[in-house]
């Protein structure tokens, strides 16, 4: 029973990181109608910058801000320099360019830094705290949980309560009408990319200290899980990304704990298959919004 509590609570913390990354996929889908396959590779680049900053300053806060800023700038650069030049009439060209970008970024990282995993020390202890004698979350898990919740609530406020969010939502679903109403749609698309890339970088930065360490492929599995979550929840649904992330996190944690780590990806794929069979549009997909 104690083991179950520990596995579930660790799963929730890990799930929130997956949820954050899935949320970044939802943001970019809503802003630019693209599934950004380069999201993980771009985030890893930002985390390398954060790693260097932490090594230079010794401050995790500086590293965290560095990851956010680098992520945002990288998002803007990819959108302005690459994606804007790709035809947006069908989703395919953008996806292919994104996959190409993954190869380029991962190769460049490999050439520059080699294949070895660079350990990143968590800011807070990873030993679980006990509640009434039962081990649950570590301090670091709690930190991840708080950061993830703050980001989720912050994004909710931004999208639903601010005029920037109103313009972002309108530009995504009705770009032509939005332009006729004076909304600077190209700028909104860039902002969507910046937000999305920054959130993804944050998610990867939070994850890396609990894993093997930093490497060009550090976020590959996270991307697969988050992509599963985004599809499960419906690419348009932030709530779906949040809940789906936690479900997948707990599932992975339980399968890893009771069976083996090797079975976890299979369990995630099985979940994806079942949900797509039952609800092809995703669990939370609104009736008419889903088009691709």
């Amino acid at each position: 029973m104690d083991r179950l509590v520990l596995l579930v609570s660790t799963g929730v913390a890990r799930g929130l990181v997956i949820a954050l990354f899935a949320l970044s996929l939802v943001i970019i889908w809503r802003a630019a109608r693209i599934v950004n396959f380069a999201q993980a590779a771009m985030a890893v680049v930002a985390v390398y910058v954060a790693f260097a900053l932490q090594a230079a300053t010794g401050s995790f806060v500086v590293a965290l801000l560095g990851a956010l800023v680098t992520g945002a700038l990288l998002g803007a650069a990819v959108e302005r320099g690459l994606m804007r030049r790709v035809s947006g009439r069908t989703p395919m060209p953008g996806m292919i360019v994104a996959i190409g970008l993954v190869m380029v970024l991962q190769s460049v990282l490999g050439i520059l830094f080699g294949p070895k995993h660079r350990p990143m020390t968590p800011v807070l202890a990873e030993t679980p705290l006990s509640v009434g004698g039962v081990p649950v979350l570590s301090r670091y898990d709690l930190f991840v949980l708080v950061v993830a919740l703050v980001v989720v609530v912050g994004l909710g406020v931004l999208f639903n309560r601010s005029t920037l969010g109103l313009q972002l939502r309108a530009s995504a679903v009705a770009p032509e009408v939005s332009r006729l109403l004076g909304v600077r749609v190209p700028r909104m698309v860039t902002i969507g990319w910046m937000l999305s890339s920054a959130v993804a970088a944050l998610a990867v930065l939070l994850l890396v200290p609990t894993e093997l360490g930093l490497n060009a492929h550090s976020a590959d599995v996270l991307f697969v899980h988050a992509f599963t979550v985004a599809v499960l929840g419906g690419l348009d649904s932030p709530a779906g990304a949040l809940l789906g992330g936690v479900v997948v996190g707990v599932l992975v944690s339980l399968v890893t704990g009771y069976a083996s780590a090797g079975l976890a990806p299979l369990a995630v794929l099985a979940l994806l298959t079942v949900v797509l069979l039952v609800r092809p549009g995703g669990i939370f997909a609104p009736k008419e919004a889903r088009t691709a």
Binding site: L166, Q167, A170, V173, L181, G182, V183
Partner: peptide, 27 residues
């Protein structure tokens, strides 16, 4: 220079209030 295009130019995902706000935003 404003244009009301033909057909359903309302942003259907937004509420009535949000549509009006969007129209008034730049001014």
């Amino acid at each position: 220079l404003a244009q009301v295009p033909e057909g359903r130019s309302v942003v259907t995902e937004l509420t009535v209030e949000e549509n009006l706000e969007l129209g008034a935003l730049w001014r």
